[in-house]
Design a protein around this nucleic acid. Structure first.
Lengths: 328, 328
DNA sequence: CTGAAAGCGCTAACAG
DNA sequence: CTGTTAGCGCTTTCAG
């Protein structure tokens, strides 16, 4: 069996309370005592039992990252990146992380009830009732890559608007005036933001952005390819296409290749997300870079702030960047 | 505060021991009693506190998935798939899952010490000392996508050999005789398996597989592209290339495109992993499909078997498949 | 089938 | 600065 606090107490000749203190607040015991305790602990291979600790303190120092997506969760590179970042950031803290999919959010809410989880980061299309349920149970909530107006919780999002602006203005700078957007029906928040931003930026520059300039598709390459084929077969085809994400842009690239259009000479393409896809295609895809790492970090930091009773801004917008590559 | 077992005891008029039994072994209390207890619990919104339960039982029903990779962990689509599968399978059981990266395996081992984790699934290039450490602490270990001869632990791997055979024989069937392989320096176990299998299958079919037929590269598209360019620029270039993974194959595709070679007419390409990449490139990439879902499931099942004191096969080989697409 | 009672390992007043 | 003591919420013999 593992050594307990009693064993250390006995071996070091101090009370269990002192042993406890030595591990929780080393500065609150005399140097000599501390040393004795640590020595004994070393000999016994003792380390405090987190379960017992949680039991006594009535808190677990555990937080959860809940990915609110139907099917693919961690499989979505975007969320995988955020998740990775959250993992790394949490490891640096003294809290533990539980990763779950929305599929069992009810379960998480349940375990949360027993204070097994003290805070959650909700990624993706979290529903209002989830948030209410968590908050009702005194569980801190932070939204990542989503917003929820009317709720009192911190959100951390990427600057979708700014990202779109970077993409479109880059194309304009390259001399394009006839720019189309191809948007997949993915996350409502995301697609809405990017679409609106596109219209706005185009208008700002006095460029037309009517029906002819926007193609909708399902969130698959095949669908994007089809949509792009239709768009590009027309006489008055655009000279540049902005994909609302890299998958959409990859579809455009495929369509161009099939139609014998040279990229970027005949057609410039820009994607969004700066995912692995960008490097895999030929030519490589110019894309808007989302700082997933930062999003994850800020998400964790916000949650910690909440948990520590500190305040944090209601919404943090993480700047986006542009990675210019061969496709434009 | 949340209701405790005492509240339920009081309201239902039975002892806490009976309440405890009602939740742990419902069949061991009289029907009428059970009903009373559940009713009271319902009214009080009671649910057993897992922490206290773990404390009393001296076990947590928690397992961990540890991804043993330096940098990218969950970012690697392959591991993301396995991870996703493990998550889903674990949810179905009554155990909880903790996901960690190798970066903090020492930490996991530490927490494991306090019986916070009772079993681990090691993915990727786990080291022998990790396994020893875990097993030394009475923690069940299962290896996923790796083997460790000389250790007494279940391994679940994909049929690398069979996968390579599918790929190569498919090319042979398409009439190719001059087949090259391009291998990236990724996981030693994987690259070794696939490389050896390639040589063997080629030999079986009486095909030459000398130095001219194998190109090594770093595990990036750029490197693969360079290697492929060199390979394909030669007069006696192969008519088909087998990439040890999809990234390598994508590099070949890019090289072909740059050299103006038509795929699959001038050059057939086959990848390995059947990742998202396959659909993103033009033409789409034929690839060996690894059943990550199954690997994850079997991994979890093996661990559960171990934890339940049951036996399970020392090594489970999951069959691979071939997804034929445009590139061949 | 049910209840009493003794822990599980640690924390947190409270005294000293 | 250190020790005493009373829990934290649940499980589990052991009687009844």
């Amino acid at each position: 069996m593992n050594a307990t606090i009693y064993d250390v107490s006995r071996l070091s000749g101090v009370s269990i309370a002192t042993v406890s203190r030595t591990f929780a607040n080393p500065e609150r015991v005399r140097d000599a005592t501390r040393q004795k305790v640590f020595e004994a602990a070393e000999i016994l291979h003792y380390s405090p039992n987190a379960i017992a600790r949680a039991m006594a303190r009535q808190q677990t120092d555990k937080i959860a990252f809940l990915i609110c997506k139907k099917d693919a969760t961690i499989l979505d590179e975007f969320y995988a990146r955020i998740c990775e970042s959250i993992m790394r950031r949490t490891i640096q803290s003294d809290r533990q992380l539980v990763i779950s999919t929305a599929a069992d959010w009810v379960q998480v809410a349940g375990t949360a009830q027993n204070k097994q989880v003290e805070g959650v980061i909700l990624g993706g299309s979290a529903q209002a009732d989830m948030v209410s349920e968590f908050q009702g149970k005194q569980i801190a909530v932070v939204l990542v890559n989503n917003r929820m107006p009317g709720f009192d919780l911190p959100c951390v999002v990427s600057d979708e608007y700014g990202g779109v602006r970077l993409a479109v203005e880059h194309l304009i700078q390259r001399g394009h005036r006839d720019i189309a957007m191809i948007a997949g029906r993915f996350s409502p928040y995301i697609v809405g933001e990017r679409y609106n931003a596109f219209l706005q930026v185009m208008e700002e520059h006095g460029l037309e952005a009517g029906a002819r300039h926007v193609a909708m598709c399902d969130p698959t390459v095949e669908s994007a390819t089809q949509a792009a084929l239709e768009l590009l077969k027309r006489k008055d085809r655009p000279t540049a296409v902005f994909g609302a994400n890299d998958v959409a842009a990859a579809g455009v690239l495929k369509a161009a290749l099939r139609l014998g259009l040279k990229v970027p000479e005949d057609l410039a393409v820009v994607g969004f997300d700066d995912s692995t896809i960008c490097g895999m295609v030929e030519p490589e895809l110019t894309s808007v870079h989302i700082d997933c790492r930062r999003i994850g970090e800020v998400g964790v930091d916000c949650l910690h702030a909440l948990l520590n009773g500190e305040t944090c801004p209601p919404v943090t917008v993480i700047p986006a960047g542009l990675r210019v590559r061969g496709s434009s």
